[in-house]
Design a protein around this nucleic acid. Structure first.
Lengths: 193, 193
DNA sequence: CCTTATAATACTAATATAGTATTTTTGGTA
DNA sequence: TACCAAAAATACTATATTAGTATTATAAGG
């Protein structure tokens, strides 16, 4: 993994901070420079333009996730735990980008958007394989792995939300355990089906 | 429920079609007029401006959902079924707006955004009460109703997706049944816990 | 006090678009 | 045919936005 120029890194970090919140289009080069207390010219010294920043951001997130990949599988043996940790990590890293940044990118830089989506699909498919293995081993019920993973992803996504956590007076970790609990055991009491 | 001018209705329908896909900001009055093969002046005859259209759209969706409210409860008795139908309807009606339109509105017309979010919260809370009743009656396990409903909403949201349905070769209805199945019974085989 | 790097500032040139004004077309009616 | 709305087509204005560049000011090191 190539470690990049620290200034380049600072620029990307500042760009990410804004673009994740407001989208690609609405963030101006002036704002990024102001955040960094850096001249706009200095930014143009390291990047040929705004588009290059978007591309670098996508490259960075892909690297980040790929770097962390595989660590979990070495430490955990329980397939439920492996799935849970993977989904947690994926959602934490990827979800923020979809909210605003990728909505803009989808319209303004469709090739880059496709690259991001393909990457995500690839990662999700790896999770589906894990569920599939669980089914084959007789540990899971005969559910559609794709739908099961998507359902879990959506559920986690909808609960990683500071507002709700605060409102419910629970920690992030507790919320995830609850979702995992529902996903694995369901909400219906046994014997009541 | 007041039935509005048919021209006003046409304008709103055209505006919705675009704004749901591209957001409020990116849709121009010229585009709406072109879609309708109608002069822009005619639009301005019925609406004082673009903002008024956004407000009317929000008002219309609220009316629509409120109108359909309650029908389900009269027809169904099984709480699981009631929850399922309610979540389905809510997600189908509301989810498309969040994708692009509300992202823009959140930044450009925050009061209107708040109105929409409050409305949604209100509806979700009604669902939580249903889960709560299920728990009190001993039909459901002792799960956090808020998280359970959010998890379900997120799961449904992540599966209402033409691409996935096609890829899996299943119908919309089948996908919903799967999600309901997982949500109620979990993915783990009984006796394997 | 000179030099270099970068911050601060100013500028340009292109683009977009809400809203209005004007002209043209159309379809109904006498 | 001639007239007359009403709405479509077209043109225009006025404003805002902002990527990218050029210029000037400032500060730190030698």
């Amino acid at each position: 993994m190539k470690s990049s120029n620290p200034i380049v890194d600072k620029i990307l970090t500042a760009a990410k901070a804004r673009m994740v919140r407001f989208g690609y289009h609405k963030v101006t080069m002036d704002e990024i420079a102001a955040d960094l207390r850096m001249s706009k010219n200095t930014i143009y010294l390291h990047f040929p333009g705004k588009i290059a920043i978007a591309k670098a951001l996508v490259a960075r997130i892909k690297n980040r996730i790929n770097d962390h990949q595989g660590e979990i599988e070495n430490k955990e043996k329980d397939p439920l735990k492996i799935i849970s940790l993977n989904i947690l990590f994926l959602q934490q890293e990827l979800a923020p980008w979809f909210e605003f940044f990728l909505k803009d990118i989808q319209l303004e830089l469709p090739e880059l958007w496709q690259e991001f989506v393909d990457f995500r699909t690839e990662k999700v498919m790896e999770l589906e394989k894990l569920v599939d293995v669980g089914i084959k081993k007789g540990k899971f019920r005969q559910v559609n792995p794709t739908l099961a993973v998507r359902a879990y992803l959506g559920a986690v996504n909808n609960i990683i939300n500071p507002e709700i956590l605060q409102q419910e007076g629970i920690t992030f970790q507790q919320a995830l355990e609850t979702v995992m609990d529902i996903w694995s055991k369901g909400i219906v009491k046994e014997g009541k089906k």
